[in-house]
Amino acid sequence: MSSPALHEPFEAIDRQRLSAALGMWVFLASEILFFGSLFLGFTVYRSLHPQAILEAGRETNVVFGSVNTAILLISSVTMAVADKAAERGLRRMVVGCLAATAALGLAFLVLKGLEYREDIHEHLVPGPDFKLKTPAAQLFFGFYWSMTAIHAVHLTIGIAAVCLFAWRVSRRAFDFTASAALPSLGLYWHLVDIIWIFLYPLLYLGGRAP
């Protein structure tokens, strides 16, 4: 009854799946600290320069931010469905949901790129001709660019992995029902989504209220 997905050094597929999930969660714990330290830096500056940070926060484009949040949340739904479909062995549904997930991820990146273009046009890149006069306002945009860029890198890796799996599942290249690869990829994708869930109020909602 051994599945082709079972590989050394494991002797049972359940244990292998649990181990893959644990390995991914351990990595995600690492990722929490990775992004968490960025949030720490932001929080420190927010406490040191509250007015300047809020003033700068009003400059981001809330439309792009909100639409992108919605896109990522929907992509998490399709990813979750892909995972469930894989458990039931529904190959075409898995491929379809993964393709939708990757497409939504790409849409996010495209919108992000358009937003970046607008930001550059509006002189929101820290430097001598920065839009706002308050020095500490540039700190906000230092974090805006680094955080969104690092998030985009994570998302790009996720999209590439999703495409790869969709392709392999559609080619019937591996036993996707038994393999732990898809659930692990799902965990990663959802974490990238969660990071954005916290980036959204941090970068787009601060200082909007009158």
């Binding site: 649990l18 999930a21 969660w25 995600l28 714990a29 968490g36 998490s76 739904v77 959802h190």
Partner: peptide, 27 residues
Amino acid sequence: LVVLIFMKLARSPWLLSLAALAGLVWL
């Protein structure tokens, strides 16, 4: 919502929650 339902932490062995909690506690 995402963690408990999409990432299935509510239905997973405690060990996985422990890993996630470790990240949060250290943060």
